[in-house]
Nucleic acid binder design. Structure first.
Lengths: 192, 192
DNA sequence: CTAAATCCTACTTGACCGGTAGGAATTAAT
DNA sequence: ATTAATTCCTACCGGTCAAGTAGGATTTAG
């Protein structure tokens, strides 16, 4: 049930670009992105090439060039990015909605595993297809503001990643909010 | 987000063994299992060896031998089986509860991707750690009974299992029940 | 004109997925 | 006692793919 590094890097980078956009930073170089997230430059270049082909990012070539989101962050669904890079969300092909594949089992309609995995795929989809890049960016920034951390791409202050003032040592880790972390912080209603 | 074939075969086989148990079939040979689920025999043998080492199944050697569940199906959590064969449920290491791994990102506590993936991992866990093998077996059998399909390992003579009156053919396919398929069919309350 | 950037294509290295193969040990039935 | 059916154990293997590396061509700002 693993996301590949490629997928992880793609998402991390898109989030970074979303943050940049919010801070009115119109273009970010790949090297800056690679450094700030500590990703291998050349690998990231390739990933961004793919994201560009698919219309998620656009670029400006030459000196002072770089990349930026090609469309509003509200129109980028996380699920679609994951599907692009890592394939279907469902753990097994016969439980997929968008990329169904018949399995070899003798009777699919009475397969308990399939029913279970459909539940899993729906649970995943209910998160990944519910939230957009904008939501994730919002939650990231909100958390940073709450802890008084300087947000990346803040004018006149490059990336600062100081750990927060530790509250008072007691981090009351509110475990497992009913409908998820992001919903708890964003209050985004279910649409489906 | 894929389950490996190994994991899939393991679960399919455990379910089969669970069904067998319910039908008072105490021992099933590996070849029977392989045939009935159309799995490669030698590969399945290896998988069962692992499941045996971990105490999920036990075996009887020699002629008329075979394997069977080593403990009650109610005590086998699907999530644990998946973890055993395919590793952590969380899409990325830093979002795992049972197998946490620090990631390379500069500031984990303000990582939007991490928060998102924690939600995903919880959503998965809420299904895979909620249901036991027994639940999946129950739902499988129930679906079969409902459709009047002969259940595997049914004794040759038509015995005890009273086939329900086949409804009336019109299966109203209620799409995507709120809290999942299995809950809809089992009505198992959330425990956590 | 040059430095800084993207763009493009090829290559690599190791892990691991999904099996195969062969035989030793054990046991039930004849 | 033999034999046939079965599990048990260890080794191997081909292919794919993840996760990068490498190097140069091209474009553009200053």
């Amino acid at each position: 049930m693993q996301l590949t590094k490629k997928g992880e890097y793609a998402l991390r980078t898109l989030i970074r670009l979303g943050v940049a956009r919010r801070m009115n930073c119109d273009v970010v170089s790949v090297s800056t992105l690679a450094e700030s997230e500590k990703l291998p430059f050349k690998f990231l270049e390739q990933i961004l090439a793919l994201l560009r082909q698919e219309g998620y990012v656009a670029s400006r070539r030459g000196k002072q060039g770089g990349v930026f989101l090609a469309k509003p962050a509200t129109e980028i669904k996380i699920g679609d990015v994951v599907r692009l890079i890592d394939g279907r969300l469902a753990p097994i092909g016969c439980a997929s909605e968008t990329d169904y594949e018949k399995c070899t089992c003798p009777d699919e309609t009475h397969c308990g595993l399939r029913m279970l995995m459909i539940d899993v795929r729906n649970a995943i989809s209910r998160i990944l297809d519910r939230y957009t890049l904008d939501d994730v960016v919002a939650v990231t920034i909100r958390k940073m503001e709450r802890d008084g951390v300087t947000i990346p791409f803040t004018p006149a202050a490059p990336v600062d990643v100081a750990t927060p003032p530790a509250k008072n040592g007691k981090t009351v880790r509110r475990a497992d909010p009913e409908d998820g972390f992001l919903n708890w912080l964003l209050g985004k209603p279910l649409t489906n």
